[in-house]
Design a binder for these strands. Structure first.
Lengths: 152, 152
DNA sequence: TACAGTCCGTGGACGCCATCGACCTGAGCC
DNA sequence: GGCTCAGGTCGATGGCGTCCACGGACTGTA
């Protein structure tokens, strides 16, 4: 993991569909060299995936909500997590410090669907309570940090 | 925007580096047809970007925090937003319903950097107070919803 | 019905790209 | 020195991206 790897990561975070030839030109190596470096970054898990970022409204997911979850004292955290994992509306799941053990980001089409999701969450064994905040608009999301910090 | 477009979106959300030829095979069209459809999805803004998803720890960003912002009654929301936009640590920014006008997701390298970020946020004109929760671990993030809902 | 226009696809062509193997070079180590 | 290995370049080749000409389905109009 050197400066060239960091440039590659930055380029691919900006546009994941750049060709190896183009990446090679940008970092000043040959295409096969870049191919091998990117392959290693993928294999070692530094690059987790390549994703197209889709406008949520365009696929009928206009409602974004952030939901804090307070866990039941008796519940099994793994079971709760597994239940969350089975709910496709939950796009992100963070295990938090604080009273609320989890913070979920969910995306649904309508407020009615959000209501159903909250009901399902409250019924989930191990969940003591939920606290939902609705996002009126997403100013930006998953913005790549422009420069990677100095590296060891 | 028909069923084929939705399949293309789903395929590209799963792997943004699929070739047009491969996409064409999956949806049963020719490569040029897919090329044109994807081009239109990009032009119309349905596809916002293609991003490589990078393991944050691997680039020295091991600390994730979610920060709620209460706005000053006198402040200008646009100015506050602009100030946030200039802080690269802020990866996502939602405008919320509720007492806290914004929810920010920030990623930094160390707790010390988080402290500096919070100080900067509290000093920002228009910000009345902040409430920071630290994510101990990210269970998952930006998971693509498996199937797009029925479409009009 | 006939006709023209539009949309959206296919197939062919051509140049660039991905990818493989062979080879080169410098660093580290006996 | 000479071995080994990591990591690069170069050259070849098959597949891919992309442009263009063409054609069928649908629609509105005479």
């Amino acid at each position: 993991m050197d400066a060239i790897d960091l440039s590659l990561l930055e380029l691919l975070r900006g546009n994941a569909r750049l060709s190896y030839a183009e990446l090679a030109r940008q970092v000043g190596l040959s295409a096969p060299a870049v191919h091998e470096r990117v392959g290693k970054l993928e294999a070692s898990g530094v690059i987790r995936a390549y994703r197209a970022e889709v406008e949520p409204e365009a696929v009928g997911l206009g409602v974004t909500a952030l939901i804090g979850i307070v866990e039941d004292s008796g519940g099994d955290t793994d079971d709760v997590l597994e239940a969350f994992r089975r709910m496709p509306e939950i796009e992100s799941c963070y295990f938090m410090a604080g009273v609320e053990s989890f913070l979920l980001k969910a995306r649904v089409g309508t407020i009615a669907e959000l209501e159903q999701l909250i009901v399902r969450l409250n019924r989930t064994p191990g969940v003591a309570s939920t606290r939902t905040s609705i996002a009126l608009s997403t100013k930006w999301e998953n913005r790549p940090q422009p420069v990677a910090p100095p590296f060891t």
